[in-house]
């Protein structure tokens, strides 16, 4: 009974790992003030979702969905999640590079890439008497 429980855990380790990675990425995004750390956290979150999708399409003992010479037509893994995730990786890279370009703009504007320092600057601007 206990043994089969651990076998189940080992067979579904990708789902557990995807959930753990999503939580770790979310923690990195929420608790860090540095923008580059936040972007790394977003990347970890998106790769965890990709891992979940491709693990759902996986079939035990199957081959990749590629035709070869002398093919037996044996079981293939589901090609639909792979095709979707291929697009998702490219979209993720474009999101990352867009965020990094905004980080450069923020650094030119404020001289820092820490969120709390930027908020302090903005608050001191608001508090200063200008009337």
């Amino acid at each position: 009974m206990i043994y089969s429980f651990w076998i189940q855990i080992l067979e579904h380790v990708n789902y557990i790992g995807a959930a753990c990675l999503f939580v770790v990425g979310l923690y990195t995004v929420v608790t860090h003030n540095n923008f580059i750390k936040k972007i790394i956290g977003i990347n970890i979150m998106e790769t965890s979702v990709f891992l979940l999708f491709v693990s759902i399409g996986f079939v035990h003992g199957a081959s990749p969905p590629v035709l070869t010479l002398g093919d037996t037509g044996g079981p293939f893994v589901n090609p639909l999640p792979s095709a979707l995730i291929l697009t998702g990786i490219v979209v993720g890279v474009s999101i990352t590079v867009y965020g990094l370009s905004m980080v450069i703009q923020i650094h030119q504007l404020y001289g820092t890439i820490e969120l709390d320092e930027i908020l302090d600057t903005e608050e001191s601007k608001d508090d200063s008497p200008h009337a």
Binding site: I36, I39, V54, I85, I89, V90, V97, L100, I104
Partner: peptide, 26 residues
């Protein structure tokens, strides 16, 4: 997980392009 196309894209994009962009920004 038997998806070599995703593996190729991840190795080229995730480990290559993203790292270069991060290092450029740092």
């Amino acid at each position: 997980l038997q998806s070599p196309d995703v593996a190729l894209t991840e190795a080229a994009m995730g480990a290559g392009v993203t790292t270069i962009m991060f290092i450029a920004v740092i």
